[in-house]
Nucleic acid binder design. Sequence first.
DNA 1: CTCAATTTGTTCGTATGTATG
DNA 2: ACATACATACGAACAAATTGA
Lengths: 246, 246
Amino acid sequence: MSHMAKTLRLSQVPLYLQVATLLRRRIEDGHWGVGAKISTIEELQAEFGVARVTVRQAIELLEKEGLVSRQQGRGTFVAATLEDPRWLTLDASWSSLIGTIKHNIPKFLPIATPLRAPRLGPEEGRAADEYVFLRSVQFRGNRAYSLVSVQLAKEIFERDSDAFRRHAALPIVAAMKGVAIASARQTLIIGSADPETARLLKVPLNSPTAEAHCVVIDRNGVAIYVADIVYRGDCIKLETKFFTGE
Amino acid sequence: MSHMAKTLRLSQVPLYLQVATLLRRRIEDGHWGVGAKISTIEELQAEFGVARVTVRQAIELLEKEGLVSRQQGRGTFVAATLEDPRWLTLDASWSSLIGTIKHNIPKFLPIATPLRAPRLGPEEGRAADEYVFLRSVQFRGNRAYSLVSVQLAKEIFERDSDAFRRHAALPIVAAMKGVAIASARQTLIIGSADPETARLLKVPLNSPTAEAHCVVIDRNGVAIYVADIVYRGDCIKLETKFFTGE
DNA sequence: CTCAATTTGTTCGTATGTATG
DNA sequence: ACATACATACGAACAAATTGA
């Protein structure tokens, strides 16, 4: 058995799904251009070290997804229309973060979970006396791309509760006159969609996500804004610009 | 059939694997504390709307992973030792990026792939005349955590080729006297491990990864350092500190 | 000590999905 | 398209260990 075939068999995931994922990446990579003919089943069978039918089954999946079209006697071709997969760019700088968020359309969710103090790490300030809990799904066009859970210091919320109920919270906080923001920090990890997230963002259960934990601290060292944001992993691109100032 | 059960069945991935992932997250979340008893098979069966044997199969997997221990007649308990899953913190600031990298141990790989000019985006400077291609696997302790492919302007490489063959490239470039760095940028997306990455980082095929594309531009607008770095997704934590300077 | 309740372990039989030649 | 082998998923019944009454 080939090395490749052994690697595939290490996983408990069905073979044809793994093969489909490999082919899907190649297509999205541009390994085969738009409209180009992909390798024949025979070639792929030899390359991956699996049965002909298994490759066929994988390609069948891709056709259902609209990624390729098969033509008997000719071959399998990459579909003409491939949308840009990474349509949401997040900028890791304060000003453009605010700018990006401002244009989004949040749909607020009713709050079912009981209030509880936000989880704060060691360098994330101390908790405010009371928080208001806000949850929303963020949209770009028709597509949901993130699930936002915000804990906002009650004192801040009440300064303009109407605005907070209709718009993204961070730009409002940033623009507030009497609020002095001392620092803000964000940590980001790669996770996977839990059942609720999967439902709200319309992604498969356990599909990869980026989970951001964002804290804004005022001059008194109080965490006035604590957000946990789950992005769908397949649409985001994180940009960071370093200025070395030499 | 419950809503949960329907969601689970939408995916082609085997049920018991999905259930295992759900339980694994709960354990890592701290939903059940260390040493605590998790829900009984009967309860989970009802919650997820799957057969008893399926839940059992999932828990069996977690026991093999060392996450839980089962005791007939008593229940299933979260293992006493849970190592910190996010042991690699990447800081999204130039100085600490350099600092973090400096202490890593790279193992250089022979270069099999043919040289080609680095892929540069619109704002990523113009290409140098010639590049040297370096590839390495980065380790923290015994554990491989990233696969680095660097294209380094040949002129830069030849200033200290010995150092570049033994250490991470970025700190060397940053410390070079005669090199003026005008800017540096990084984009990061969530991807999945291709066969080669899976082999080198010892992760399952198609497991989530973070793919960083990092470009350093000198005063003449030339991209002197272009790196594509693939991190294993399960161990990294990305930190960003915003200073608003109000 | 015994008994019942609880909880996990084991083993059927059956149906369907996956992978091969 | 077919035959074969193995994995997955289900429900059901029974066995074995633990706990507390």
